[in-house]
């Protein structure tokens, strides 16, 4: 009895931190989203669904949600397959450089997203590395526009999120051993069958976690779509940002944030369903 009480007491500091830093702000956000229009007369109504009505009625916001999900899916579908071989290599390597290589793979996390995004602007810009090289080689006669758009946003997001994907894939490969692949090969499986029947299924928990993480991080990213999009990429986060800083329509920003939260929630529910199915295939 007392030990159980003690165990619960141990939860207390974390619980307090969670309430203060997460629950309270979210509650505040919800509260704000139900506030009346900013320019309506004061004392009009305590609770108003105006912001939500505005979101649901305006086709633009539907399009923004679709755009957000689409970029998230594309980024996920590129990042996870690109990170998988790197994670496999790192988990297999017996070289003394393995530690260094693993550190290098996650080293980009040491620099801020802003700096890395600017790095991509330098590479993709109108007078950037790629355009100058292609012009110099005579492949192009006019610079092509690579920056300021969805393409640039996706490229930068993929690169920025790869370290996260690599770490989570590595963490979820516990059941995959070289011996299992060798056993399959000796049983007559050619390389690609070993990969499809043994490597991928056993790495699936890691791949799934990586997909969740990358998707969530990409739909919630602000700096990259803002800077790489050049004002042409509209996603939920950029919309929330402009509503809070420029339009000063906080109820609308609150409603959009709630929408984003709901999106997170449904993705996490999907992930948990898939994870449970993985654990218990029956």
């Amino acid at each position: 009895m007392t030990t159980r009480l003690m165990h619960r007491m141990l939860l207390l500091p974390g619980l307090v931190a969670l309430v203060v830093t997460f629950c309270l702000p979210v509650a505040w956000l919800l509260h704000m989203s139900f506030m009346p229009e900013p320019d309506s007369p004061p004392g009009h109504a305590a609770i108003s669904f105006h912001a939500y009505a505005q979101v649901l009625e305006d086709g633009f916001y539907w399009w923004v949600v679709w755009q957000t999900v689409r970029i998230g899916l594309v980024v996920t579908c590129l990042t996870v397959p690109l990170s998988f071989p790197i994670a496999l290599f790192l988990s297999r390597s017996t070289s003394p450089w393995r530690g260094t290589l693993a550190a290098l793979a996650v080293a980009p996390l040491l620099t801020s997203t802003v700096i890395r995004t600017y790095g991509w602007m330098v590479i993709l810009g109108r007078h950037g590395l790629i355009n100058r090289t292609l012009l110099g080689l005579g492949v192009l006669s006019m610079p092509v526009r690579l920056d300021n758009g969805t393409f640039a946003t996706i490229v930068a997001l993929v690169e920025i999120l790869m370290p996260y994907a690599i770490i989570s894939i590595l963490g979820g490969m516990g059941r995959l051993t070289v011996e299992l692949e060798q056993a399959a090969a000796l049983l007559g499986a050619p390389l690609w069958k070993v990969f499809m029947r043994i490597t991928v299924p056993l790495a699936l928990p890691g791949l799934l976690t990586a997909s969740l993480l990358v998707f969530v991080l990409s739909i919630s990213s602000l700096v990259t779509p803002q800077l790489m999009g050049g004002g042409r990429v509209f996603v939920l986060s950029t919309e929330i940002f402009s509503q809070t800083t420029q339009a000063l329509n906080w109820p609308l920003a609150g409603a959009l944030s709630t929408l984003l939260l709901a999106l997170f929630g449904s993705v996490i529910v999907l992930y948990q369903r898939a994870a449970r199915r993985l654990e218990d295939p029956a």
Binding site: T177, E179, L180, A183, I198, L202, P281
Partner: peptide, 8 residues
Amino acid sequence: QSYALFPH
């Protein structure tokens, strides 16, 4: 030695 049975 570890049997290497496919756990999935």
